[in-house]
Nucleic acid binder design. Structure first.
Lengths: 191, 191
DNA sequence: CGCGGGTTTGATGATGCTCAAGCCCGGTGG
DNA sequence: CCACCGGGCTTGAGCATCATCAAACCCGCG
């Protein structure tokens, strides 16, 4: 699966083939099955994950003891609990595979070594995090502006196809409401 | 005010005095008065702002035609509409001074030149955006987990002192509820 | 001193949750 | 091949949270 990451890096920065293949050697492939856990709460987040194929989700157990999904990551996304990963302290999240997935992983130590040996990768990760920052500003805006119902309609509009890949109760959880309410919204639409 | 930014950079990366003073020459100081606008919706976000002193806020006009604050930035924070800034397309936000503030600004062009001439700054901005990414994961978690009332108590606990600096209706807006409801919460506490 | 922005108070009502029950359907074991 | 799970989706009743609107109030500033 390294070709997926390779293409992704090349899309963002200028780097010659030789250096790029050295860069790629820092990552380890990992295949996970559906529902397999990559990180559980209170354990230190060891890796930064790149999804070459499949789908991961990040969640936590809320006060009512139910899983609260906060993020999905599909092809070409990076995912990690960045607080835990960068401080190497216990995580506040779980990371789990929604589908069988092909990942590339890198530990903090390896990543630091990578950045030292290949400073151009600082730029790559700067761009990644900056994009996420921009996306998160947008996401926050939407959450302030739209009702839960409109969040749902907006989501299916902006991620057509993805809705079919995940069970509805996960989507409801991500959007921040109950599965029952999502069901209500869907039936409303039909009439 | 460049000394504030200087100290901030030195805290995050290793850089010698000489290069650092060259780096600082890329930024322009800017003094703004209370309520002064730095960016308005639909205008392209020209600058990335570093707050040396004072307080900015980012907001947008929601569907009900009221200002919805989504972010505050105080001393040592960077603020910009990163979607608009990095694509140079019309912004989705306003940026306004909450207090009279001392800023350092840098345009996209200048920033790109800076990063080209001083690649070590890629690392600095990578770290900035990564921290914001981590903070935003945490913020999202809190917003999923806590009731509006608990969000308020958590906020004043984690930002003691800051509450005194801003009018309550701005805090209510940031926390995502009405000024009236905030008032209710506060009176509850006293009894 | 008066004006006006910000805060408080209270009544009313919508949004979206909780709980409980039933349903649908794909998988599994007999 | 069929029967029976059991997880996920649906439906509905009752309820909590928080918004809206209107009015009064407070107080700092011009």
């Amino acid at each position: 699966m390294p070709e997926i990451l390779k293409a992704h890096i090349q899309k963002l920065i200028e780097i010659d083939e030789e250096e790029l293949s050295s860069v790629l050697s820092y990552f380890h492939p990992l295949e996970v099955k559906k529902k397999q856990n990559l990180l559980t709460e209170d354990q230190t987040c060891q890796f930064n994950y790149f999804v070459a194929n499949g789908c991961l989700r990040m969640f936590f157990i809320n006060r009512k003891d139910q899983e609260q999904t906060v993020q999905f990551a599909i092809e070409n996304w990076w995912l990690s609990d960045y607080t835990s990963f960068s401080t190497q302290k216990p995580a506040g999240f779980y990371i789990q595979a929604v589908e069988a997935s092909s990942l590339l992983t890198i530990s903090l130590l390896k990543q630091e070594e990578l950045l030292k040996q290949h400073p151009v990768m600082e730029r790559y990760f700067r761009l990644i995090h900056q994009r996420v920052h921009a996306a998160s500003q947008f996401r926050i805006k939407m959450r302030y502006d739209l009702s839960r119902e409109d969040l749902y309609h907006d989501f299916i509009k902006r991620h057509p196809g993805f809705v079919q890949r995940i069970p509805q109760y996960l989507l409801a959880s991500y959007l921040g409401f109950s599965a029952e309410y999502l069901s209500e919204i869907r039936s409303k639409k039909r009439s």
